[in-house]
Amino acid sequence: MVQKSNSIIVGIVSRFMAPFIQLFALYVIAHGHYSPGGGFQGGALLGASILLLRLTVGDKGSELVFKKEFGTPLSGFGVFIYAAVGVLAMIGGGLYLDYGSLPFAGMTPAELRSLGILLVETGVGIGVMATVIAIFDDLTMRHFRD
């Protein structure tokens, strides 16, 4: 249970910053093919932006952005995306996680591999974001009666 911050400056600045952090995180995930970045870093950034809101705006305000109940199921969903891409490659006739045989028509194996990397990184990003938020929410639950 995190209380709302008493300082007006901290609240307004963090509310202003959070969307930009999220935009940058999406850029890091989507541009991970051509510059340093990828699913792990982008997911950590997305999680950090939500944690910033949790710490400054408080539980009530930040749950409009990300509900507490979504944390653990969404991290499972991220792992599911990763595993499902592997199974999709098996449906296309290849080995598990062999993105060259994903069943999308009209693409060369090299392009399919690039697409498979993007799908997998998205799954990793969702998983890392949701796990970071879920761990934070569990740790900051009201544990002690005061």
Binding site: G37, G78, E111, G127
Partner: peptide, 26 residues
């Protein structure tokens, strides 16, 4: 067709490894 070698190793050459790591985090 991906210039970032770290990403290719992470997601494709060693994809099983990363699947395991993601499962550990979960």
């Amino acid at each position: 067709k991906t210039p970032n070698v770290v990403t290719t190793i992470l997601a494709d050459y060693r994809g099983y490894d990363t699947l395991g790591e993601t499962t550990v985090i979960f």
